[in-house]
Simulated scan of single mutants.
Amino acid sequence: MPHAPSHVVTVILRRMRQEARPEVIAAHARLRAAAAQAEGFLGAQDSWLPPHGDEIDLVTVFSFRSRRDLEAWDRAPERQRLIADLDRHCLDISERAAFDGLALLQPDRVRVSKPETVAILIGLILTLGWLADLLLPPFPEPGRTVLAVSVNVCLISYGFLPWSIRLLDALKRKAR
């Protein structure tokens, strides 16, 4: 069954002088009113962070039904005009972050228990240790041990463990 398109949330942070706040509020209200007319617009929320010195930050979150709706809004000439008006009052503007279905904010979806992870680690350590003994006999001690442990740690940490956990997770999902 195909998945429905996920909602998209965009977040942007604008910094301005406190005296620019009334103009920013007015410009942002015009932007929100225009966005409310856009296809797929779900809502917006603003949060003013506590002032620091004579500057203040505005965090804005816009929600759209899909990435396609957000991209159409991004291309709208009215939006471009309103954003330019809003941004001229700002000292600094963050890059906008867009999250589809909040995927980047959710915890990792891999569901492998600690005992399974430990079993994978033990298996990898024994296997790679055995291979190191086969491949490194001419190396003198303690260099051989240091090299074998270093290779084990690197291979397990950056290669075999992430790969084997994803594989185990995929096998577990398939078995359900």
Rank of each mutant, 00 (worst) to 15 (best):
R176M: 07
N152R: 01
R81F: 06
G101F: 03
A97S: 10
L58N: 06
E19I: 10
C154L: 15
R176V: 09
R176E: 14
P2D: 11
G123S: 11
F99G: 01
A170V: 02
P138V: 07
C90I: 10
I125A: 12
P5K: 13
S94Y: 08
R14K: 13
D92C: 01
A175T: 12
V59I: 13
A132G: 09
L155S: 12
D108V: 04
P77R: 13
P137H: 06
P2M: 11
I156K: 05
A36F: 06
P50N: 04
R17Y: 08
R21W: 06
A119L: 14
I125N: 09
A27K: 05
S164A: 15
K174A: 15
L167E: 10
V59A: 11
I12S: 04
L70K: 04
V118Q: 08
L161V: 04
A148N: 06
H89R: 06
A26D: 14
S63C: 08
H89Y: 10
L171A: 13
S150N: 06
R68N: 01
P5T: 12
H28K: 09
E19D: 15
D87G: 02
E23C: 08
A148E: 03
L124T: 02
R30C: 05
I93A: 09
A170C: 04
T117N: 02
G53M: 07
T10E: 12
P137F: 01
C90G: 07
V61W: 01
A148R: 02
G101S: 03
I83A: 10
V118T: 11
M1P: 14
V11F: 07
T117A: 12
L31I: 05
D57Q: 12
I93K: 14
G159S: 09
D69A: 13
S113Y: 01
C154F: 15
H3T: 13
F41A: 11
S66C: 04
D108W: 02
S6I: 03
A33H: 13
G159V: 15
A38M: 14
R32D: 08
K114T: 10
A20P: 02
R17N: 14
P138M: 07
E116P: 00
A119K: 10
A98D: 12
R88K: 13
T60N: 02
Q80M: 09
H89W: 11
